[in-house]
């Protein structure tokens, strides 16, 4: 009974769901790598693999565990991943865990900054638009949002970099990347342009969702009740209308996190930010299969965890969900 009660709790169910998703992600990443032509031996030795004698090859297969059934290989791999062994770069010899420990926080910082930019721009523009629907102000807001939706990050990023570097002579990203703790001032400057580019892309869908959510919330009875109490416009907009529109805005923001991780790959490349996106790209360029495999896994896990966090946030934002 108690167990059933616990399992029935939405929070527990959500956690189990996340666990299943993670397991699925692990399988997918594993299978994807087996499906790619060539194996670890070819990947490691390159064309030299062709020169291996069958005996040498068999020895290597035993060494890498490739002679084991796939299921056993999967369990072995999963076991090592779970104990923190994500493999190592063949080229530099650095472990992927160590590389990720450096790059993931950078991407997360970029993501948080972009979210801030996206929310401030998106919700701000939506509030301006919604305050006078169908006015010139609304039209301008929507036009900018449309631009944000249609201009790809690589274009906007390159353009921004070109303008800043060439005409303003400002390019903090040309310098060696500074981690946040080492040199916050330089770090934030280096994060500025990438966060603006990613944030602008985020702002567009947030703006559209927020605008319609705000317009709808405005007409609800409880907003009229607040007006009936004599609540002044600013307080009304923030405490009642925006508060009421927060759930759809949050949902949209959560959905955009995937875009954010994808966009990070591009933007980190343009602005030489050594984040996790760049780690994947370099891995691919240098045919470092272990690096790519583990990094993709890390990104997927991050994505699942962020979705979980978004769901948990609902409980903070909506007291009705909190109650269940």
């Amino acid at each position: 009974m108690i167990l059933r009660g616990t399992l029935g709790h939405p929070l527990v169910r959500r956690l189990l769901e996340a666990l299943f998703t993670l397991a699925g992600v692990a399988v997918l990443v594993f299978v994807m790598l087996r499906a790619i032509p060539g194996d670890q031996i070819t990947a490691t030795l390159g064309t030299e693999a062709a020169a291996l004698t069958p005996a040498q090859r068999a020895a290597l297969e035993t060494y890498y565990g490739l002679d084991q059934p796939l299921v056993v290989q999967f369990w072995t791999w999963l076991g090592s991943v779970l104990t923190g062994n994500l493999g190592a770069s063949e080229r530099s010899g650095r472990s992927v865990l160590e590389m990720t420990a450096n790059s993931l926080p950078i991407t997360l910082e970029l993501a948080v900054l972009s979210l801030v930019v996206g929310l401030v721009l998106g919700v701000g523009a939506a509030m301006l638009s919604a305050s006078r629907p169908d006015s010139a102000r609304d039209a301008a807001g929507q036009a900018v949002a449309l631009a944000g939706l249609s201009v790809p990050a690589f274009l906007l990023g390159s353009a921004l970099l070109a303008v800043a570097a060439r005409f303003l002579g400002y390019n903090p990203n040309a310098e060696q990347f500074a981690p946040l703790v080492a040199d916050p001032a330089l770090n934030l400057q280096q994060m500025l342009m990438p966060a603006l580019v990613l944030g602008f892309g985020l702002a567009a869908p947030i703006m559209r969702t927020a605008r319609s959510a705000l317009l709808e919330t405005r007409t609800l009875d409880f907003v009229r009740t607040a007006r009936g109490k004599g609540v002044p416009p600013r307080r009304l907009q923030v405490r009642h209308v925006l508060r009421g529109a927060l759930v759809p805005i949050l949902t949209m923001t959560g959905l955009q996190f995937g875009y954010l991780l994808g966009g990070a790959v591009v933007v980190e490349q343009i602005f030489s930010v050594p984040g996790i996106g760049r780690q994947v790209l370099i891995g691919i360029q240098q045919k470092e299969y272990a690096v790519v495999q583990s990094t993709v896994l890390v990104i997927a896990v991050t994505f699942v965890l962020v979705n979980l966090a978004t769901d948990l946030l609902y409980r903070v934002v909506d007291p009705r969900v909190r109650a269940t």
Binding site: D221, F222, A226, G228, R320
Partner: peptide, 19 residues
């Protein structure tokens, strides 16, 4: 509003702010 003239509404299920 609220100070000199106040109103009680038809549907209490929707007239309060749920948040």
């Amino acid at each position: 509003r609220g100070r000199e003239i106040a109103m009680v509404y038809q549907d209490p299920m929707t007239s309060l702010n749920p948040f």
